[in-house]
Computed example of a mutant assay.
Amino acid sequence: MSQISLHAEGISDVTIIPNIFIDQFMPSANGAYVKVYLYLLRCYSGNFTELSVSSIADRLENTEKDILRALNYWEKMNILRLTRNSQKEITSIHLMDLHTMSNKPQQLPDFDSELDEIAVSIHTDSKPASRKSYSAERIAQLTNNDEIKWAMHIVEIYLDRPLKPMDLQLILYLYEELHFSAELIMYLYEYCVSKGKKNAAYIEAVALTWAEEGIDTEEKAKTATASYNDHFNTVNRAFGLNRAPGQIERQYITKWVEVFGFSDEIIKEACDRTILRTQKPDFKYTDKILETWFKKDVKSTADIARLDEEFSKGSKNQNNKVTPMSKPATNKFNQFPQRTYTAQDYEELERKLLNKGF
């Protein structure tokens, strides 16, 4: 990704959010999009004028596609202007002066058909796959089913609005293609709405993940969601967090549970050691600890104790090791051949000394 230069009009050197943005743009915008715009304001006010899509994604714990989607949204809303190179990469972002804009509310684009949230489930970042569309005749046939009628009624209650055509298409896809029962469809919507996610793309992504994992009943879905909520709660308590894990944090936890196969007890031990050594909830540091344990085939806390003991013994042996005396260095003096003296030599030396009057 190329570097992006950031420019603005009518924005001071402190992070000020124009009232027109709060009054006219924020209420109808996706929360993730609002975060991107606020971060751009902060970058400009802090003179962080050189940035990239990937740096914004890392800072906001989002994907690059989601950042691009947010930037395109605000460009359509005319509150920023994007400049692109021949490869269609964004090279500059120009924040517009909202005070010069008309007070007339903007016409909001319809984002029901777009993935306006990071479509993640409790396990992975599954993206909705392409699916067929149902004809009006087929929809009429399926909606005559009493199970589907009841599920549609409950879904309307969860969404707190009448069903749209795309809602019908998704419900029928879940029932016909993924073979979800009416009870599982209702629980799917209940689960997603409880997390504040009413977007159809998000709901579909969760459904696809469940289908891939063989979750085909309401009971299995409840067990799976409860299990992962337990994993998240374990990490939150260990790190002293009072919020839901972010996207990248969820990916780490998923890796520890699904790839490494560690229990909550082992994960908690790694989190505790992270806090002791770094004095902060550092997911990267915890991941390094768990990766080391995984490579050493740790299965229980007893294995961790064994590794600690081996490390301690190794350190003591290293400290107690006697350093052998080195061989005397060779120099021009000890390289000189030593002379051997006889008794006659000593007598001759004594006679010479006496003759000199000593």
Rank of each mutant, 00 (worst) to 15 (best):
S55W: 01
I56M: 14
I56N: 02
D58M: 10
D58A: 13
D58T: 11
R59T: 12
R59D: 13
L60E: 05
E61H: 14
E61M: 11
N62F: 11
N62M: 15
T63H: 04
K65N: 09
K65T: 08
K65P: 00
D66L: 05
D66Q: 14
D66C: 04
I67T: 01
I67M: 03
I67P: 01
L68R: 02
L68G: 00
L68N: 02
L68M: 09
L68H: 00
R69S: 01
R69F: 01
A70T: 03
A70S: 12
L71C: 06
L71F: 05
N72H: 09
Y73A: 00
Y73R: 00
Y73V: 00
Y73T: 00
W74M: 15
W74C: 05
W74K: 04
E75I: 01
E75W: 03
E75Y: 04
N78M: 13
R81G: 08
R81H: 14
R81F: 12
L82D: 04
L82A: 06
T83F: 15
R84G: 01
N85R: 07
N85M: 08
S86R: 11
S86A: 12
Q87E: 15
Q87W: 08
E89S: 03
E89F: 00
I90R: 00
S92E: 14
H94P: 01
L95G: 04
L95P: 06
M96G: 02
D97C: 07
D97R: 09
L98S: 09
L98H: 06
L98W: 07
H99S: 15
H99I: 08
H99N: 15
H99L: 13
T100P: 02
S102A: 07
S102I: 00
N103S: 12
K104L: 13
P105M: 08
Q106Y: 13
Q106R: 15
Q106P: 09
Q106T: 15
Q107A: 12
Q107K: 14
Q107L: 13
Q107W: 04
Q107N: 10
L108T: 12
L108C: 01
P109Y: 08
D110V: 09
D110E: 06
F111L: 14
F111S: 12
F111P: 03
D112Q: 10
S113F: 07
S113L: 10
E114M: 05
D116S: 13
D116M: 04
D116V: 15
E117L: 08
I118D: 05
I118A: 06
I118N: 02
S121A: 10
S121W: 03
S121G: 15
I122P: 00
I122K: 01
H123D: 10
H123M: 09
H123T: 02
T124I: 02
T124F: 11
T124N: 12
T124H: 14
T124M: 07
D125A: 07
S126P: 03
P128D: 08
A129K: 10
A129F: 04
A129Q: 08
